[in-house]
């Protein structure tokens, strides 16, 4: 996969992929075409994106792009340096999994039978998920959690007839420094 926004391979291979994946949190100007510039840069330089998510930040002049990159395609340092050359890119932080809060969302529709229905509801409860839609013979479940938790959940769901699963790709923020006032605050304070 050269580039694909918000596409996460099915089947929960996140665990074995962990080592070759790095998370970049990229603060960009909220201008039209910025995502195209990032996508284009990755494709032109032959870097692979594993997953990507974009949304405006607390300050609507900026957006945060969370990119999970495949570092087997190029050294991370080259990727960040090239990204930095984009005029609209303000800041890039590499998010180290051990020092970050990482979340991802999963939605899944599963065909149910009378026996499996309660098992699935139980499974969702154990994982702290939610049933968000109920059909005659199907359930749609939702789980937000770390990518690893989602992998585990997805593996267990696979025992049932899955109609469809959609994951968002992860978003991440650096863990807060407990010894000092929050960095995130002072940052947005300066920006506004």
């Amino acid at each position: 996969m050269t580039f694909s926004a918000s596409v996460v391979p099915m089947g929960g291979n996140g665990a074995n992929g962990a080592a070759k994946h790095h998370v970049l949190s990229v603060l960009v100007e909220n201008k039209s075409g910025v995502l195209a510039r990032i996508a284009q840069l990755f494709s032109r330089r032959g870097y692979n994106i594993y997953s990507l998510s974009v949304a405006p930040t607390e300050d609507d002049r900026f957006s945060r792009v969370t990119i999970v990159v495949d570092v087997e395609s190029a050294p991370l340092e080259q990727i960040t340096k090239q990204l930095h050359k984009l005029i609209n890119v303000l800041k890039i932080s590499e998010i180290n999994a051990s020092q970050a809060v990482e979340y991802e969302l999963l939605l899944g529709s599963i065909s149910t039978s009378s026996e499996s229905r309660s098992e699935i509801i139980e499974l969702v409860r154990i994982f702290d998920g939610k049933i968000v839609d109920v059909g005659f013979d199907k359930l749609t479940v939702m789980l937000a959690g770390s990518p690893k938790t989602l992998d585990d959940f997805e593996a267990l769901l696979a025992m049932y007839p899955i109609v469809e699963i959609q994951r968002t790709g992860r978003v991440a923020l650096q863990k807060l420094d407990r010894s000092a006032p929050t960095r995130a605050r002072s940052k947005s304070g300066k920006a506004s």
Binding site: G33, Q40, L41
Partner: peptide, 14 residues
């Protein structure tokens, strides 16, 4: 034009 020239300019503006 901005799409076509994105990879051959340092930056472009519409």
């Amino acid at each position: 034009t901005t799409g076509i020239t994105m990879s051959v300019t340092k930056h472009n503006w519409l």
